[in-house]
Design a protein around this nucleic acid. Sequence first.
DNA 1: GAAATTTTTTCAAACGTTTGCATTCGATAT
DNA 2: ATATCGAATGCAAACGTTTGAAAAAATTTC
Lengths: 343, 343
Amino acid sequence: MNSSRPVTIKDIARRFRCSPSTVSRALNDHPAINEDTRKNIQEYAREVGYQRNEVSLSLLNKKTASLGVVVPTISNYYETAVIEGLHTVLQPMGYTLNICVTNESYLLEKESLSKLLSNRTEGIFLSVSQETYDAGYYEHLENVIQRKTPLIFIDREYEDFETSRATVDDYHGAFAAVEHLVTLGYKQIAHLKGPNGLTVSEQRFKGYLNCLKKYNMPVREELIINTNFNVESAILPTKRLLELTSPPDAIFGVNDQVAIGAMRVAKDKGLRIPQDIGLVGFDNSPISAYMYPSLTTVHRPGRKIGMEASRLFLNQLNGSGDFAPESIVLPSELVIRESSLRI
Amino acid sequence: MNSSRPVTIKDIARRFRCSPSTVSRALNDHPAINEDTRKNIQEYAREVGYQRNEVSLSLLNKKTASLGVVVPTISNYYETAVIEGLHTVLQPMGYTLNICVTNESYLLEKESLSKLLSNRTEGIFLSVSQETYDAGYYEHLENVIQRKTPLIFIDREYEDFETSRATVDDYHGAFAAVEHLVTLGYKQIAHLKGPNGLTVSEQRFKGYLNCLKKYNMPVREELIINTNFNVESAILPTKRLLELTSPPDAIFGVNDQVAIGAMRVAKDKGLRIPQDIGLVGFDNSPISAYMYPSLTTVHRPGRKIGMEASRLFLNQLNGSGDFAPESIVLPSELVIRESSLRI
DNA sequence: GAAATTTTTTCAAACGTTTGCATTCGATAT
DNA sequence: ATATCGAATGCAAACGTTTGAAAAAATTTC
C-alpha cells in the first residue's frame, strides 16, 4: 500500500535523524561526509531501493536529458533505421528519446512540438509531415526556434529555416539510378513518383528528369505516375503503365516498396525481369537483396543519417554563443543487382 | 540571448505586479479571477509565448504522463506495429512514449528500466531481451514491481510474474500453418526455427511438432534448423536443407523474413514454388502479399497487441486497490496465398 | 456610514533534490 | 583556559507550479 510511494531523501534523513543535505551528499560521495555516515546511508538506500527522483533534478538544473523525435511514421524501414541511429549515439549519453508519430498530420505535429517544449525537451529532431509541407505551415516551428531549442531537420526540410539538417543526396542517387538504366540501353523509362511536394519525391523526380535530359531522351508525361511510398499504391499505376500502347521497358520506383509492387505486377503479366522490363528502387531495404530477381536500388544510409543528426545536435548544444547551422548531405549509392542487369 | 530562458509564471507576475498565484489561476480560467485580469494575463502570455513547465507540475503532482516502451529492436515490422498500436491509444490520452531499445542485451534492459523508474515513468511495456530470457534474470523486474509501476509484458513473457501480458497465440497459428501444409499433401516439412529459449520461437516450434504428431508424421531432426528472425540467417540453413539426400518438400519459417530467405534460395536452385516446395511464413508483413509467388503466412496482429496492451495498462492504473493481472492472448490467423497452394 | 457580503488577490506550503554558506562540535595548539 | 582549526552537519534558497486558507478590496445591505 504505502510501498507504492517511492522512498525519498527525506525518508532516509528521518530514519537517520539527519538533514536531507547530509543524505544527498552521502549518496553522491561528497568528501565532507563522515565515512561511516556515508556507508550506512548508502547501504540503507540500496536496501530500501532508493532511486533518485530525476524529475526534481530536471526542475532544479533545467536539464531533462530528453529529446524529441517527430516523424510522420515509424512503419517503414528507413524511419526506424534513422531512429536506431539516433539511439546509437544518444542513448549511451544518457538521453531519452520521446518518439512522436504525426501520421502526416499538421495538427498532430503542432501538438507534438508543443508538448515537447512544455516538457522542456532539450532538442527536437523533425521530419515534417506532408500536410505541414503542402500547406507551408511554419508558425509551430517559430515557436521552437524562439525557445532556442535545437531543432534538427531530417530529410524533409524547409529551405529557409536557420537550422541544422541532415539529408540524403536523393538527387544524385536518382540520377545515377536512371543513368544506369540508360547505359544498359533501356529507352522508355517510367517513374513511379512519390507524393508531390515532398523534398524526397521531388529531388528524385528531378534526378530522373535531368538524367533523361542529359541523354536527350524524351520525357513522356504518361510514364510518370504518383504513388504513396507503399507497395499497394504501386499496383494500379504499374498496371496502367504496362497497358499503354507503348509501355515502358524500365521503371524507376521512388522507393523499394513501390518497385517491389511494380515487380509483382510485371511478373503477373508474364514479363521477364530484367530482359523485358528493368526495375530500380530506392532505399536498399534489407528485403531488396532477397527478391527474385534481387532488386537494383539506391542505398540510403538511414542509420548514418540518425548518427549525423545526433552529431549536429551535439554541435549546436556545445556550440559557443553564435551558432551557425550546419547542413549534412550524405551521398546515396547505387547498388546494382539483378532486376536491372540485362546483358 | 536572454530569450532562451523560457518565460515563467513569475515573469508574468512581475510584469503585472501581482502574485504568481493570480497568474496561475488566470491562465487556468479559475472563476475567482477578475475577467479583465484574466484577459490581460492570457493575452500577454500568448504574446510572449508562455508555455507551462510540465516538469514542475510532474514534481508537484507526481504524474509524468510518460510511459516506457522497452523492446529488443525496432527494425522489424512487427515491433513497429506494436508501437504504433500503443501510440494510437496512448498519444491521444496525453501520454508520451519513451522508447528504449535493448538490442537483446540484459545490461541495456536493466539500465533502461532503472532510468525509466528514475524518471518516474507511470508504466512500462516490456518485451524482454533474449539475453535476459536465456539467463533467467528477473531482479531488475522485482524493482519495477516493488514500485508498483504497472508493468505489461508484450509477447516475450515470464510465466511466473504477477503482471498483465498481451501475447499472440503463436502455438495455434503455427499448428494451423503446418496442418495446412499437411492437408495439401506435403510430406517432409522442415522448420526454420527461431533462437532457442524465446517464447515466440518455442511456441511456434511446439505447434509444428504437435501437428506432425497429430498426423503421425515422423519428426526428422535434420529438418529443424535455428535462424535469427532475419533474411540473411535463413540463407545457409535453407541451402543445407535443400542439399539433403532427402530434402524437404515444404518449409515452415519462424517468420516472413526467414521464409523469404528460403524462397530466394529455393528459386536459385530452380525449384518451383509451390509445386516442388511449399513455403509458409509468420507475421503477415506487408511485403509478404507481394512476393512472387505471394507468401502464405500467419497473421500476427501487432497493432492490436499494442492497443490491447494499452488497455491492460489503463485497467491496472484505474483498478481499485486489489489488482488482478490480466492475460490477453490474441488469435493468429492463417493467410493462405500462392507459396503453399499446390493443387 | 457601519456592517455584512461578495469578489479578488496574496500567502505559504508542497513536490525532491542540490549547494553555498553558516554552524556546531571536538581536538589541537598556544 | 582560550583561541584556532578541521571535520561534519544543518540551514535555507532555488527550480516552476498549484491550491487551500487567509487577507484585502470592493460592493451591497440596512
